[in-house]
């Protein structure tokens, strides 16, 4: 905090804000109350949890990196290049945010599955089968999470003061150099926030993953999948798993908040 005093909100906002906070915190408290604290150690040290956590971390980080690699170029073009059908392209890119993830997973299956539109050629040429593999999990995560990064970065690019880039260009920097030396550093915080959002979305991904990549302990069973399957049999295990997921996500979101969501 660099400001002296924080401002007082208009009082009409307070009850709504309090209600909102309750809406998010009460379910979490419910989870904590039901948690099998005495069994927690045993439950969490089992191979199901450690393997699922490992797979979740690998696939979500990989998905966030890939989302950045394809999301930034898409955001740049969507924000700055006028071309026919731009609204349609933007809609397509944003679609996974609103589609039920299971629909996304099914679409992926018919596109990249062993018998899919593209997947069949890939399988014939290389023998690679994406479903039921960790790459399948990553692909499902990328599909679902990338829109969050595109949305964030496109917003930042639109709000960028164009004078810096123009100045760099006037001084003789090529387009790539301007992008790398001026644009990227200026949208850095938004890119980081977008990547973080994409990572968090990927970490919690369930529907597209189960539909496209299946679920096998140690190969494709990420934390959300393990929670869902555990729920069928042992609620304690499901709650314990959920707590780990909550703790990891919350820790990252809180720790990075100050650094990445602008000054505060």
């Amino acid at each position: 905090m660099t400001r002296g005093r924080s401002p007082r909100p208009p009082s009409a906002l307070i009850p709504f804000a309090v209600f909102g906070v309750l809406l998010f915190s009460v379910p979490l408290i419910g989870l904590l109350v039901r948690a099998p604290w005495s069994r927690l150690g045993t439950v969490l040290s089992g191979p199901v949890v450690t393997q699922a956590l490992r797979l979740s971390l690998i696939s979500s980080v990989a998905a966030a990196l890939i989302a950045a690699a394809i999301g930034v170029p898409m955001a740049w073009i969507l924000a700055r290049v006028e071309f026919p059908g731009r609204a349609l392209v933007r809609g397509l890119v944003m679609l996974p945010m609103v589609l039920p993830p299971v629909v996304g997973g099914t679409a992926l299956l018919y596109a990249f599955g062993r018998r899919g539109l593209v997947g069949e050629a890939l399988y014939q040429a290389t023998g690679i089968v994406l479903p039921f593999s960790l790459w399948g999990v990553v692909l499902a995560n990328v599909f679902i999470a990338t829109p969050f990064l595109v949305l964030t970065v496109e917003g930042a690019l639109r709000n960028l003061d164009p004078r810096y880039e123009s100045a760099a260009a006037v001084m003789g920097a090529g387009r790539w150099r301007v992008f790398r030396r001026v644009t990227l550093p200026m949208i850095g915080p938004s890119l980081a926030a977008g990547a973080l959002l994409a990572w968090a979305r990927a970490l919690g991904e369930f529907g597209a993953t189960i539909t496209f990549a299946g679920s096998l302990q140690g190969r494709t069973q990420t934390m959300p999948l393990a929670v869902f399957v555990a729920l069928e049999q042992d609620r304690d295990v499901a709650i314990a798993l959920s707590l780990v997921l909550v703790a990891v996500s919350l820790a990252v979101l809180v720790a990075l908040r100050n650094r990445w969501w602008g000054p505060s």
């Binding site: 099914t106 479903p131 039921f132 189960i210």
Partner: peptide, 20 residues
């Protein structure tokens, strides 16, 4: 030699139907 344990029979049959 199992490649996936689907959460219910509908998920399983869908993947067989798709030839996956």
């Amino acid at each position: 030699s199992i490649d996936t344990s689907e959460p219910n029979v509908l998920f399983l049959i869908t993947k067989i139907e798709a030839g996956e």
